[in-house]
Simulated scan of single mutants.
Amino acid sequence: MTTLTVPLDKLVPISRFGRGTASAEFAKVEDNKPVTVLRNNEPVYFILNEHDYRHFRELEEEVRELRNAEARRQVENKEYVKTFNSVEELGDYLDAI
């Protein structure tokens, strides 16, 4: 289970958005401090500013690139890895090459 830590002044019940106070809640958003919207005392939405949104998108792209590089590395290394279930199977393979 992942632990989520947010400042108490950034927790907002979802009901506040139906009372015409949404702009005041949006104004609470700061760099690295999203507003956490709660429903039934559980976080369901996070309101980010543009700076943080762009930062997270960049991080997602970096992770995607790292995963792709790792997948390519595994494919490249797989060509040099062969698994044998017995010594006889290894011998048959070596005789064939």
Rank of each mutant, 00 (worst) to 15 (best):
M1C: 03
T2W: 00
T3N: 10
T3S: 11
L4S: 09
V6A: 13
V6C: 02
P7G: 00
P7Y: 12
L8E: 14
D9F: 09
V12M: 04
P13M: 06
I14W: 13
S15Q: 15
S15F: 01
S15D: 13
S15W: 05
F17E: 06
G18L: 06
G18A: 07
G20Y: 01
G20K: 05
A22Y: 04
A22L: 03
A22M: 06
A22G: 07
S23K: 08
S23R: 13
F26T: 02
F26K: 00
K28A: 04
K28L: 15
V29P: 08
E30Q: 15
D31W: 01
D31L: 05
N32I: 03
N32W: 08
K33Y: 08
V35K: 06
V35W: 07
V35T: 15
T36I: 15
N40Q: 06
N40V: 00
N41R: 08
E42T: 14
E42P: 03
P43T: 04
P43C: 11
I47G: 01
I47A: 13
N49Q: 01
N49C: 15
E50W: 00
E50V: 06
E50Q: 07
H51V: 08
D52C: 04
Y53I: 00
Y53N: 04
Y53L: 04
H55R: 14
H55T: 09
H55G: 01
F56A: 01
R57H: 02
E58G: 05
E58V: 04
E58T: 14
L59C: 00
L59T: 04
E60G: 13
E61L: 07
E62R: 08
E62N: 08
V63C: 00
V63Q: 11
V63A: 11
R64I: 00
R64E: 14
E65A: 13
L66H: 01
R67M: 10
R67A: 10
R67L: 12
N68P: 03
N68Q: 14
A69F: 03
E70F: 12
A71D: 15
A71V: 09
A71K: 12
A71T: 13
R72Y: 09
R73C: 02
R73T: 12
R73Y: 11
Q74P: 02
V75Q: 14
E76H: 10
E76S: 09
N77Q: 14
K78A: 11
E79S: 13
Y80V: 03
F84T: 12
N85R: 09
V87L: 13
E88R: 07
E88I: 08
E88L: 11
E89Y: 05
L90G: 05
L90W: 12
G91R: 09
Y93H: 11
D95L: 11
D95P: 02
A96I: 10
A96T: 14
A96Y: 14
A96G: 11
